[in-house]
Each structure stands twice: as C-alpha cells, then as structure tokens.
C-alpha cells in the first residue's frame, strides 16, 4: 500500500515540475502534498499528516496561487543544462548505496508511541527564542529588499 502512495507522490512531483501550465503545475503540487499527508496518516502519524494537509495543501498552495496572479502565468523554458539530470541521478544512486551499505547499523523498534503531546515542550522550548530570531531576521531581510528595490526604481 505504501508503495502505491509513494509512487503517486513521485509521479505528481515530476508532473508539477514538467507541466507547462502554471495552474496545472500548482494543482499537481497541491495533490502531491495531499497524498503525502494521507500517507503520514496511514503511517499512524495523524498530527503530522494533518499539519501537512492544512499547511501545504491549504496554505502554501493558496500562497503560490496569489504569486501566480500577481506575477503572471508566463512559463519560462528550462535551462539547457544536460548535467542536471545526471547529477540528480548520481546523487540518488550514491545515497541509496550508502544507506543500504550501512543498513545493519540501524536498530528497529515498531512498538513505540510517537504521539507524545508534550514532546515539543520537553525538547524544544529552549529554542523558541532562536525561531523568533530567525523569523524576525527573515522579515527584516524582506523589508530591506523591498526598500532596496524601491530605491532602485526611484533612481
């Protein structure tokens, strides 16, 4: 069953990068995230699956739709770099080989409960300030970028 889910996800991922129409590409991307979220639910990680569906299928897809409506639906053809597919294939083969060579080091245990609601508080509450710093620096960068572009236009 998981192979069916994951094959559909890979097909939709390739489709979202190769379809020429932006809206069709966006729908393919949203469907990919939906199937991935359903797969997490199938894996019994319900909260992560719902996170995935609400944030990616709901939030980011609508955000991308706003981006398309603001910027336009013009499709730019791909760069003609024949080595990109080769590099991606080599990377995939290398990682799979490394994983299966070191597979014996892994310790499997199927009888655990990963839906511990206090896990985030226990493990990551100290890092909240760092997240806040990252978010504020991203927003600062955005504002600086916009002001630089505005200055550029005025010149």
């Amino acid at each position: 069953m998981s192979i069916v889910f994951l094959t559909v996800v890979l097909v939709l991922a390739v489709a979202s990068l190769t379809l020429k129409k932006s809206i069709a590409s966006l729908i393919s991307f949203a469907l990919m995230m939906l199937v991935l979220g359903l797969y997490y639910i199938f894996l019994d990680e319900k909260l992560l699956g719902l996170f995935q569906i609400f944030i990616y299928t709901g939030g980011i897809s609508v955000l991308m739709l706003f981006g398309i409506t603001l910027i336009g639906r013009e499709y730019k053809p791909s760069r003609k770099n024949p080595w990109t597919a080769f590099v991606a294939s080599v990377f995939f083969i290398l990682m799979v080989t490394l994983f299966f060579n070191n597979h014996d080091l892994l310790v499997f245990d199927n009888n655990i409960n990963v839906e511990d609601r206090e896990l985030f508080v226990k493990s990551y509450s100290d890092f909240v300030i760092i997240f806040a710093l990252i978010a504020s620096s991203l927003l600062y960068g955005t504002i600086k970028m916009m002001s630089a572009l505005k200055r550029k236009r005025d010149v």
């Binding site: 998981s2 192979i3 994951l6 996800v9 890979l10 991922a13 390739v14 979202s16 990068l17 932006s22 590409s25 966006l26 991307f29 991308m64 981006g67 398309i68 910027i71 499709y75 730019k76 053809p77 791909s78 760069r79 770099n81 990109t84 597919a85 590099v87 991606a88 294939s89 990377f91 995939f92 990682m95 799979v96 994983f99």
Partner: peptide, 28 residues
C-alpha cells in the same frame, strides 16, 4: 521504502532547482 522514496524526492527537487528558471517551479 520510505528512505528510498525520500532520496528520490530529494533528487527530483535537486533536478528541478537546477534546471528551472520559473520562480514557481523553483519554490516547488
């Protein structure tokens, strides 16, 4: 299977980011 799938998805993303000009597909 999950790990092989994750590597495949990463490779597709790597291919997409290095071969596309469009901002939308780069974000994808």
């Amino acid at each position: 299977i999950d790990i092989v799938f994750a590597f495949a998805l990463f490779s597709i993303g790597l291919f997409g980011i290095s071969s596309n000009k469009d901002f939308l597909r780069i974000f994808f």
